[in-house]
Nucleic acid binder design. Sequence first.
DNA 1: TTATTATTGACGAATATTGACCTTAACTTT
DNA 2: AAAGTTAAGGTCAATATTCGTCAATAATAA
Lengths: 159, 159
Amino acid sequence: MASLTRIIEKHIEELLERASEESVFLSRKDLAERFGCVPSQINYVIRSRFTPERGYIVESQRGGHGYIRVIRLCLDMPEARANHIEELVGDTVNEQDIRRILANLQHRQLITARERLLIEVAARFQEEIGRDLLDLSPYKRDSLHAELLKRLLRSLALG
Amino acid sequence: MASLTRIIEKHIEELLERASEESVFLSRKDLAERFGCVPSQINYVIRSRFTPERGYIVESQRGGHGYIRVIRLCLDMPEARANHIEELVGDTVNEQDIRRILANLQHRQLITARERLLIEVAARFQEEIGRDLLDLSPYKRDSLHAELLKRLLRSLALG
DNA sequence: TTATTATTGACGAATATTGACCTTAACTTT
DNA sequence: AAAGTTAAGGTCAATATTCGTCAATAATAA
């Protein structure tokens, strides 16, 4: 357990929580020294963890006084959330995508574990019907998945 | 007879009971070594036993420090409850039945308003697909409704 | 016997880590 | 002001470590 990446991820999250601002400025070099890794490891953490999909945007500057700034988006308004969902889901999603999206939403406390379970079961049932009973193509199934998921999430985001 | 699958299933269940958390992190490789089987056997156990329909959510990550995390949402699933669900829902339900059942469950505080919403939206979507896209008979649609509803409620161990 | 469930293994995909080399911005020196 | 120097951060590819999928086969149950 405890991979370097996760440790650094947690560290940045803590900094964000502690900050009164909604963003933090990081020094790639200092972070790398602190955690005893190569600087590009920090890029990896940022690239893989602090993505728009997870509700972050990142700015940076090279050269003297360079920095990496991590900004946490706040999606207070229902409308902003709804738009975010549209983007998140897109036109087709497979079951793996669904699991990822749901884990993400639960982690951000936008849905509960029980709600997540309900959505997974509904999606699986639809997949089963589409595959075994109706013999739909994988593409058709994935686009039905996307439609179902968007409706379910929309109903929550706006309700 | 104690098939390997059952042994591993029991092992994971024990880990879950012993854990103070509601989840455990497993290493597929280590489990496979411990029980002297191929790693993919673990996938089989997970896929066939720890399903959302049974109240479990599974997350996993590949690569270095990878894991399989099993989350248990429902501590127990008494037979009485399961039977009750069967009775409550039966073999076919129309949308009106569904609304009535859900209202009842919400009134008894067994589901939240949001959960009710999810179930209704899922049912309506299925109805729409079955009617407009697949041209299923009303009877067929109602029996699919019943199956979906039972699975959703069972996953929450309600009834 | 037939259908379902379990076991295995070959192959593929995802994630993490590291390091060499590239780009950019600020500072310093002519 | 221009050129050079220094101090950041960025990119990409190689490698290692896990886990997932799928199809073939075996075992068990109906």
